[in-house]
């Protein structure tokens, strides 16, 4: 547990791609066991923010801590210096990430996808990793797909394997970037169910999603991003009943048909 009591805390994070400033000072703090949904129009910087937490992008200003450890950088004489490749890798192992397009390893079976990182990164004995992976696949309802390659799985099944794969590293924090937006409508539910269960079990989660039904059921907090900033923050109920900002109202009226 971190010194300041937050699993993740981002302070004034700035990020630019060339001339384009994508994050203009984003601050967010997430407590242990909290589920935070991030909403906002396309291009508002949601994906970029999530990727910064995982240090898949460098940041140009501010700081991000996970479990009290500065992500991607080291402090030296008051300056931030990018960490070595290996220590960044070590930090990433503590943070799970689920991508919009699943990104399962196509040359490995469902089980092999799940045991890959525990065995290769953590050095978990293979037999033990397999046991754990079977348990995880059972949890996401795919025990029978153990030896199937991703190419033979539906999108919903692939995304559930991807969740199991991330969980196999026993992360302190799970990041989801629109995990259901590449899915057919009929399989969205099965993925959201797995995520809801995870939330109930007390996993700390940051979820970029426009599934307001999920937000209402599982989220403790919703943050609205617009143009590289968090413009509004509150409980899911707040967003349904009395959003404050005009931009939020506009946005919600578009996604809540």
């Amino acid at each position: 547990m971190s010194s300041n009591g937050f699993v993740m805390s981002a302070h004034e994070v700035r990020k630019r791609f060339g001339r384009l400033e994508v994050l203009k000072g984003v601050s967010l703090e997430v407590k242990r066991g909290e589920v935070v949904c991030v909403i906002g129009p396309s291009g508002s910087g949601k994906t970029t923010f999530i990727r910064c937490i995982h240090h898949l992008e460098k940041i140009d200003g501010g700081r991000i801590e996970v479990n009290g450890h500065l992500i991607g950088y080291r402090e030296q004489n008051g300056k931030l210096i990018e960490d070595s490749e290996r220590s960044i890798a070590r930090q990433r192992a503590e943070i799970g990430m689920v991508f919009q397009r699943f990104n399962l390893f196509p040359h490995k079976t469902a089980l092999e996808n799940v045991i890959e990182a525990p065995v290769q990164v953590r050095g978990v004995p293979k037999r033990q990793a397999i046991q754990q992976a079977e348990e995880l696949l059972r949890r996401v309802g795919l025990a029978d797909k153990r030896d199937v390659y991703p190419g033979k799985l539906s999108g919903g099944q692939q995304q559930r394997v991807a969740i199991a794969r991330a969980l196999a590293m026993r992360p302190a924090l799970m990041l989801f970037d629109e995990p259901t937006s590449a899915l057919d409508p009929e399989v969205i539910g099965e993925v959201l169910d797995v995520m809801k269960e995870l939330a109930l079990e007390g996993m700390t989660m940051i979820v970029v999603t426009h599934e307001m039904g999920f937000a209402r059921e599982a989220a403790d907090r919703v943050v609205m991003m617009d143009d590289g900033r968090i413009i509004e923050e509150g409980t899911p109920e707040h967003f349904f009943r009395e959003p404050r900002e005009e931009r939020t109202k506009q946005f919600l009226s578009k996604i809540l048909v």
Partner: peptide, 29 residues
């Protein structure tokens, strides 16, 4: 796909490991 390298790194693999275990076996095909 670049997503393969990112997925591998997001699981805590460093560059060389991700290259050896994930990218090169697929590139081999």
């Amino acid at each position: 796909d670049r997503g393969q390298m990112e997925a591998a790194r997001s699981l805590g693999m460093h560059y060389r490991l991700a290259m050896r275990r994930i990218v090169l076996p697929q590139a081999a095909r």
